[in-house]
Amino acid sequence: MSESRPIRIVEPYAHTRHVKIPTSFQGVPLIDFLSERYPYRSRAYWAERVQAGDVRIEGSDMSHPEDVFKRASAVTFFTPRVVEPTVPDEVRIVGEGEGWVAVEKPAPMPVHPGGRYFKNTCLAITEELLGQKIYPVHRLDAVTSGLVVFATDDRMASTMTQALSEGRVEKEYRAHVFGRVEDDEQIIDQPIRRKSGFVFESVPLEVTAQEAADTEPTIESSKSKGRGNLKQAQTLIRVLERGQDSSLVQCIPLTGRTHQIRLHCQAMGHPILEDPIYGPDGDASGKTLQNGAIRLQHAAMRWPTLGISLRLDPPSGWKV
């Protein structure tokens, strides 16, 4: 992280957390789940944590690495000394009204607690700024900067969540991508699924059609295609400014999938600058930690039924 940016540091602390197990892992040994879901740690590391009693299947006093998940399983993680990575100390409030508040989130910084972050999150920092409990209503990647809206009461949280689920919220992103994008406007229509750990993949429609034609795939072939189910994903991309080596584009997600903008810029043939996973030299193995900022900004958000309209200025350092 740049030395010129203010950073936030929290003191180490003990922490216990609980993680629900997706149904796709039922019947899978604990060690296989840990290795696949958190591939940035070695299999030997997870085996040692389980044998030490720090990681166990919920409901048991002690687990073995080869214990198999049963229906409705969860995992308990205990860490005696959490040392959170630092984050930019730059969260600022950019709008607020009855039942809601909007902030500009810097990157890298997660919105929600999880992984290596519990106190250095946009949620926790915004609660400190306001001095009250708030409710997250949408996601934003840790490596993406820009608008994050929180509800300040449970009634508004329900209203906002419902509006999002019904597609009544408009979002707009700005991205700085590799290369000269020639098409003024295009729609990328490629379904998305989880590939491994925190890495996802978009799949061309012709490939998904071929997979649908396959009958009775084996367990091994299913694993090779990723554990997640394919979900429809569409993004409208418009060119804002062209250069010889890079372009600025506006991205409007017509669906809301994890890593959608990043994956669809990659599918367009113009990945986002500084993306360690989906960039030209990205590592899609899931073993690379995403601990830097990429050139992607959540730039605008409109909730027409609530009369909320928010927009951020473009980042000053993005030049084509």
Rank of each mutant, 00 (worst) to 15 (best):
85 P>R: 05
86 T>N: 13
87 V>T: 13
88 P>N: 14
88 P>C: 14
89 D>S: 15
95 G>I: 02
96 E>G: 08
97 G>C: 09
98 E>I: 13
98 E>S: 15
100 W>Q: 04
101 V>A: 03
105 K>C: 03
105 K>M: 03
106 P>T: 13
107 A>Q: 06
107 A>C: 12
107 A>H: 03
108 P>L: 08
108 P>I: 10
110 P>D: 11
110 P>V: 08
111 V>T: 05
115 G>I: 04
115 G>Y: 03
115 G>C: 11
117 Y>T: 00
118 F>D: 00
118 F>V: 01
122 C>I: 01
124 A>D: 03
124 A>S: 14
127 E>K: 00
129 L>C: 00
130 L>F: 01
131 G>T: 09
132 Q>S: 14
133 K>P: 02
135 Y>Q: 05
136 P>Q: 12
139 R>P: 05
142 A>L: 12
144 T>H: 03
145 S>F: 03
146 G>S: 12
146 G>E: 10
148 V>F: 03
148 V>A: 07
154 D>H: 13
154 D>N: 12
154 D>R: 15
154 D>E: 15
155 R>C: 05
157 A>D: 10
157 A>L: 06
158 S>D: 10
159 T>N: 06
160 M>A: 09
160 M>Q: 01
161 T>K: 13
165 S>M: 11
165 S>F: 02
165 S>L: 13
167 G>E: 08
168 R>E: 15
169 V>Y: 05
169 V>N: 10
169 V>G: 10
170 E>D: 09
171 K>R: 14
173 Y>E: 07
174 R>D: 07
176 H>Q: 13
176 H>E: 13
176 H>I: 04
176 H>P: 04
178 F>R: 08
179 G>R: 01
179 G>Q: 00
180 R>T: 12
181 V>E: 09
181 V>H: 06
183 D>S: 14
184 D>Y: 02
184 D>L: 07
185 E>L: 13
188 I>Y: 00
189 D>S: 15
189 D>Y: 04
190 Q>E: 09
190 Q>T: 11
191 P>H: 05
191 P>D: 06
191 P>C: 11
193 R>M: 08
193 R>E: 04
195 K>D: 08
